[in-house]
């Protein structure tokens, strides 16, 4: 598994090649021998290709900010989105258990973004909010506040999406 890393705008691929006698990491075109000594919180003490580097580092979002010899570097590890398999686009919302509609947050014909609230339902003394799993246009709302529904009941239909080129 390679790591794609970007430092101050320069991208490179980092690959661990070996671990003995020292950790060998290929960064872009070059292979570096790395020895990490333990250091305090936020500090690092690395020997790279025989040269010792001591400095500070701190995580900031998906970046690590590194302070080394009077310069600050921003190192970003490219991570895949925490999408958990990507949302698949459903065309309708059905009730997973029986309950009653407490509130409706959208309207027929409205366009909603992923994550936008659609309905608030109550089942078994527990309120749940149903959100849109993807951006879509609401074709029809099949329930109104106060409506009682069974498991599997159709609550919201989305307008079919046009085929997009990918």
């Amino acid at each position: 598994m390679g790591y794609r890393v970007e430092t101050d705008g320069v991208k490179a691929e980092a690959q661990i090649l070996g671990r003995r006698p020292q950790l060998a990491v290929r960064l872009g075109e070059r292979v570096h021998r790395v020895l990490a000594a333990s250091a305090g919180e936020g500090e690092f003490d690395l020997t790279v290709d025989g040269v010792r580097y001591r400095g500070w580092r701190c995580a900031s979002g998906d970046e690590v900010h590194v302070r080394l010899n009077g310069r600050t570097y921003r190192v970003r590890l490219e991570r895949r989105g925490a999408d958990q398999g990507g949302a698949s686009e459903q065309e309708e919302v059905r009730a997973s258990m029986p309950g009653v509609v407490v509130a409706v947050h959208c309207a027929s014909g409205a366009h909603v973004e992923a994550g936008e609230k659609l309905l608030t339902l109550e089942s078994m003394k527990l309120q749940m909010t149903v959100v849109a799993s993807h951006a879509a246009t609401i074709a029809r709302l099949h329930v109104a506040p106060g409506a009682v529904f069974e498991r599997g009941a159709l609550l919201v239909s989305f307008a079919p999406r046009k085929e997009s080129e990918s």
Binding site: V5, T7, L27, A36, L46, R57, R71, Y73, V75
Partner: peptide, 18 residues
């Protein structure tokens, strides 16, 4: 700069997975 590799490695080694 010459030390960009060291900084990158310091950043990489801050990552728990790496």
């Amino acid at each position: 700069p010459l030390e960009s590799a060291a900084a990158t490695l310091a950043g990489l080694l801050a990552d728990e997975d790496f």
